[in-house]
Amino acid sequence: MSRRRKSYLKYLDNEAISRITSEPLLTPFPMEGSVSGHHRSPHKGSSVEFAEYREYVAGEDPRRMDWRVYARSDRYYLKEFEAETNLRCYLTLDCSGSMGFGATESKLEYAKRLAATFAYLIIGQGDAAGLLAIRDKKSFELPAKRNPAQVQEILETMGPLKAKGSPSLVDGLHDLAERVRPRGMTVVISDFLDEPKDLIDAIHHLRDRRHDIVLFHLIDPQEEDFPFERPTRFVDLEGAGSLITEPAVIREQYLESMKIHLESLTQGCLASEADHRIIRTDVPVAEVLDKFLGERSSGKAA
């Protein structure tokens, strides 16, 4: 393994892997996979899980007919079973300039650790994971695969990415919804600083395609606490200029604006059954994933 490749392994959170490998990731929505798996499929298949009885329609395969029912009721019924398939998970990483902010660790670095560990867990349970890195209207895409080498591919793809440019997450999500037909899980890791209405529209678009959507909303502790006192010149990381102000004067209004933004996103996600999770970047990745998987297993999540 080269030194470069070795350095990307740092994005795999060992604590998270050790804590949650036994916990399977389940989705409440039917998924369309290519092979058999743990996830519910929208199609009826030949698994051992009984689904329903359905009246026979001429032209259907007579081998699936339940003859015992015919003997008792003199009617033709088909006995159907649940199909179980694998999951296609698309890890969508926002690489806009704002993701480069962070007091100790940038949001992008945290997002990479979260995405890498998540991909490892997905592939580890036999599901497929892909990567979509959106940066300044350019996307770096890795199709979803269930091959164990896919983890390495994902690490090498997102490892060298830098936070840069203006926000283009909304366009990327719309594009993703159009291109990826089979139902899958879309995990979006971003700071979601775009216009809430546009973001919600994009989420609706994805939900229309029957995707299970999980939004990991990354917030730096400084963004949430706004601990500045002295007059400060805030330089926008996405190139929108700078602003000199007295934090003490605008602190209350800043926090209020942020609260409104988060509430609108949360409300939009609730409406579209997307799983919106606000993550402070000072919270360990293991804790975030443990909580996420736990809630998924218990069915608390959307």
């Binding site: 300039g97 704002s98 993701m99 480069g100 902010f101 949001k107 700071d191 600083l193 730096d220 963004e223 500045f228 002295r230 007059p231 400060t232 010149r233 805030f234 330089v235 926008d236 990381l237 996405e238 700078s242 000199i244 942020m258």
Partner: peptide
């Protein structure tokens, strides 16, 4: 004033 890179 001090300069602070800022996302939000």
């Amino acid at each position: 004033h001090r300069s602070q890179p800022w996302a939000a």
